[in-house]
């Protein structure tokens, strides 16, 4: 056993400096296209057509990207004709535009979670990537325990329901059961493009258009999958310890 102690000590500290400072290591985030890009009408329309999830809107000479729908397919950045600027950050979490349990940012936002929060993760038809990224939050790089975030096995002890996946038919009832089993005050955080908008899977006869069809969502974390740091940012926003992404009001 001493072998593991020594080996563990020799490993040293790898934990990220986030949220004190920004993490700058390579490969931590796939980035997202710039939210607002002025461009000519012909390119703009082409851009709208090339986006498979309808994340890009073109209005008055500006291409706007809805982060909730972007799935990092890179189709908008492949052609030199209309390449969108990519932003490499990860602080994408935002308050849900409607249906939230709490008036966002207002005084009614629960203060109980500032120091510590227990998370129940529910897989609602996720492709595995978001789930794997949530799992990475426990690894020494991100180590969310240091911030007072813990995964619980039962929703009875959970403060926040972290939902990944587009909510398909078979997981809908378990998801609702988990939400019902949680004590109040409770939050719901939808993680990943599928959970926000159904992603590439919805809507269909077994899949809806995200968690908001079923539950009131409070926090949204865009990305497909959102990298661990983005999810961490989402948790910090939920706890009221970080501001949400500026200028995002859901649309």
């Amino acid at each position: 056993m001493s072998r593991w102690v020594i080996s563990g000590l020799r490993q040293g500290v790898v934990t990220t400096c986030y949220p004190t400072r920004m993490e700058t290591a390579k490969g931590t985030s796939p980035g997202l296209p710039a939210r607002l890009t002025p461009m000519a009408d012909e390119f703009g329309q082409e851009l709208v057509d090339v986006c498979p999830t309808g994340a890009i809107h073109f209005e008055r000479g500006e291409a706007r990207v809805d982060y909730g729908r972007c799935i990092h397919c890179f189709r908008c950045s492949r052609s030199a004709r209309y390449v969108l600027e990519w932003e490499s950050g990860f602080e994408w979490a935002r308050f849900a535009s409607d249906g939230s349990n709490f008036v966002k940012g207002a005084a009614s936002w629960p203060k109980a979670f500032r120091k510590s929060m227990h998370i129940r993760v529910v897989d609602a038809g996720d492709c595995g990537a978001c789930l794997n990224e949530v799992k990475q939050l426990n690894n020494p790089y991100y180590n969310m325990h240091r911030l007072g975030f813990f995964i619980t096995p039962t929703p009875r002890k959970a403060d926040i329901l972290l939902v990944v996946g587009p909510v398909n038919d078979h997981t809908r009832l378990p998801l609702q059961a988990a939400y019902d089993a949680m004590p109040t005050p409770k939050l719901v955080m939808a993680v990943g493009a599928c959970a926000l908008s159904g992603g590439v899977f919805g809507p269909s006869f077994v899949t809806g258009t995200g968690v908001k069809d079923v539950l009131p969502v409070d926090i949204e974390v865009p990305g497909s999958p959102p990298p661990p740091l983005a999810i961490l940012h989402g948790l910090l926003v939920a706890a009221g310890r970080k501001p949400p992404m500026p200028g995002q009001d859901g649309r």
């Binding site: 039962t154 929703p155 378990p174 998801l175 059961a177 089993a181 109040t184």
Partner: peptide
């Protein structure tokens, strides 16, 4: 106090 059904792992 709120009474809720037994949590059974999301079983129907």
């Amino acid at each position: 106090t709120v009474r809720k059904p037994v949590w059974a792992g999301g079983l129907a």
